Amino acid sequence: MTDAQAPTIALLVSSERGRRTLGQAVQGFGYQLVFDTAPERVQLSELTEVVADLWLLDMPDESALADWLLESSPVPVLLGSGEIPPPEHEDHVRWQRRLLQKLSALLGDAPQAPPVRLVPTPLPVSRRCVWLLGASLGGPAAVKQFLDVLPAQAPVAFVYAQHIDAGFESQLPHILGRQNAWRIRNCTEGSQLQHGEVLVAPIGRMLHFGAEGQVQLQEQPWPGAYQPAIETLLDELARTFAPHCGAIIFSGMGEDGVAACGRLRRQGMEVWTQSAASAACSTMPQAVRTAGYSSRDGSPDELAAALQQWLEQERAADA
């Protein structure tokens, strides 16, 4: 069979992002896309000339174009595709599956459809937002409280650098992940850090990120007195993910990371600290504040709420 025999679909979708995502999806399923012009550039007379087996609409409630299609179209009209989750989110797979089921019910399977791989599209490194969570004494409780408040659907990933005995490294995902939906994991060579994840920095080996953001583990220990070295990790995140990165320094002893926080701030990125009143040990966040590098201070709950608001503002600015 040829591509000409595949059922044809016409889109009338207000959102440019929605139109692009739907167009990619239907063609990935093996259907033909024959019309996807932005509605504001379409005249009513043009709709009568479009030959398609199905119209897929996602329009405002009041639209003369949509009204005409619903009343006069000789082919099925599918209203709405549901809210489209970001490509990196696990719900994107479910959205694809629901859409394919609806199309198949109305049109049948595309006769020459390639195997459909319903998997999330990895987010490019340039669009990944990655923050470091640095902590020492009292850190696990503070970081868990922070993650319990921040929704796991937030468009951000974390690298968690906790000064702790190496014997507890494998237990940190379980400790932090109870009662929240974050995907918390230890490092695996070659894996990709995606939004909704918390990557636990290894204690005994250095962590780097490749050109595509892939995890690279090295056998040599971290430089300096701290394992893992927040100082080194902050520079690594800035090298790989800037300008979409930041840091939050939670409860702890020592001054690990202070100088790197300064370098981050000079590049215009955010550095936040846990407040002294809420920290089991305020020495580490206080060192960052004293150096003048903290751009926000608060309890874990307050920092989580602030980050959610900051991410929303960033998303609006990029739209």
Score class of each variant (00 low, 15 high):
Glu236Thr: 03
Leu264Glu: 03
Leu264Tyr: 08
Gln216Ile: 12
Gly224Val: 00
Glu212Asn: 00
Tyr226Arg: 08
Ser251His: 02
Ala181Thr: 13
Ile164Arg: 09
Asn186Cys: 15
Asp235Tyr: 09
Arg178Pro: 05
Glu197Tyr: 08
Glu219Lys: 09
Thr240Ala: 02
Val258Leu: 10
Trp182Gln: 10
Leu199Phe: 02
Gln194Thr: 06
Gln179Leu: 07
Thr188Val: 02
Gly262Lys: 05
Gly224Arg: 05
Pro221Arg: 06
Val198Asn: 10
Leu237Gln: 12
Ala260Gln: 04
His195Cys: 11
Leu237Tyr: 07
Gly213Trp: 11
Thr188Tyr: 13
Leu264Met: 12
Pro228Gln: 02
Val159His: 02
Gly254Ser: 01
Arg185Glu: 06
Ala161Tyr: 11
Gln214Tyr: 03
Gln171Trp: 13
Ala161Val: 07
Glu255Met: 14
Ala161Phe: 11
Gln214Gly: 12
Ala166Thr: 03
Gln171Met: 09
Leu193Glu: 07
Asp235Leu: 13
Phe241Ile: 05
Ala260Tyr: 01
Cys187Gly: 04
Thr188Ile: 13
Phe168Arg: 07
Ala260Met: 09
Arg205Thr: 14
Ala260Asn: 10
Leu234Glu: 01
Ala181Val: 13
Leu199Arg: 06
Ile249Pro: 02
Ala259Tyr: 06
Gly177Ala: 15
Ile203His: 01
Asp256Ile: 11
Gln216Cys: 10
Ile164Cys: 12
Arg205Cys: 13
